[in-house]
């Protein structure tokens, strides 16, 4: 049995044994998506443009996608996910879920419901046995045509390295490309430990999709290199 088959089998088994992660499936029903679109177009995106006017570099790379993808980005701030959603545009955003730390965003029902409805987040258990259930759940969503935005470093304040393997399992098992994103400037707007943003400009770089292949470690390396490459482009950009 290959590494990929062993991994798939183990995760499928664990999912059957531990169906403990709530899925918040109502947040992906058509009425909830309609409400989310309204919130995002009517409030979230205009507000973000006011607080953190963002410039998107490499948006043409999104045209190369013809199905779901796994978007991976460096993680600096709680603003990362909303800015990514705004930068990726309506076409991608409509069928995109954001993997959000279950222990933080889903610590209460109200917080979880608000995040699920406004941002389309799904709970992701970062450690322990349930993390496999989370991965399996995300894989099921990708199988249904949903893209996933994930911050593979797992916590804020890290650079474009130290990615955990979860996204690679997801992309390879579902055979969808990985799209590297680099966010520049959000560490100034709302760094870890801060709860009120200090407005400022942001640049979002989008790299070319990376084919999944079948080697988990290699894909992690390629994604880290992809994000680092986008960072070079962003920092070399004249306006940055």
């Amino acid at each position: 049995m290959s590494e990929r088959e062993q991994s798939q089998s183990a995760r499928a088994g664990s999912s059957r044994r531990r169906g403990t992660v709530p899925t918040w499936s109502w947040a992906r029903t058509p009425p909830a998506r309609l409400v989310r679109s309204g919130i995002q177009y009517g409030a979230l995106v205009p507000l973000l443009k006011f607080i953190s006017p963002f410039t998107v570099i490499g948006k043409r790379n999104l045209a190369k996608l013809d199905g779901p993808a796994v978007f991976v980005a460096n993680h600096q701030s709680h603003f990362d996910a909303p800015i990514c959603l705004a930068a990726l545009g309506g076409r991608v955003r409509r069928r995109l879920v954001v993997a959000a730390a279950a222990d933080y965003f889903y610590s209460s029902a109200v917080k979880g419901a608000a995040a699920s409805l406004a941002l389309g987040t799904v709970p992701f258990v970062r450690s322990g046995g349930s993390s496999r259930d989370s991965l399996q759940f995300l894989k099921d969503l990708v199988g249904k045509g949903w893209s996933v935005l994930i911050f593979p470093s797992g916590t804020r304040g890290t650079g474009a390295s130290g990615f955990k393997k979860g996204f690679a399992y997801l992309a390879i098992d579902a055979q969808v490309p990985v799209v590297p994103l680099y966010l520049h400037g959000l560490d100034q707007v709302m760094p870890k430990g801060s709860f009120i943003p200090l407005p400022g400009g942001v640049v979002v770089g989008i790299g070319p999709p990376i084919p999944p292949g079948d080697d988990y470690n290699a894909l992690v390396g390629k994604a880290e290199a992809g994000v680092a490459e986008v960072r070079t482009v962003v920092k070399g950009w004249e306006g940055a």
Partner: peptide
Amino acid sequence: EVRSTVILGYGG
């Protein structure tokens, strides 16, 4: 060396 990116081509 702080540079902003609010206005394209001008920075801040």
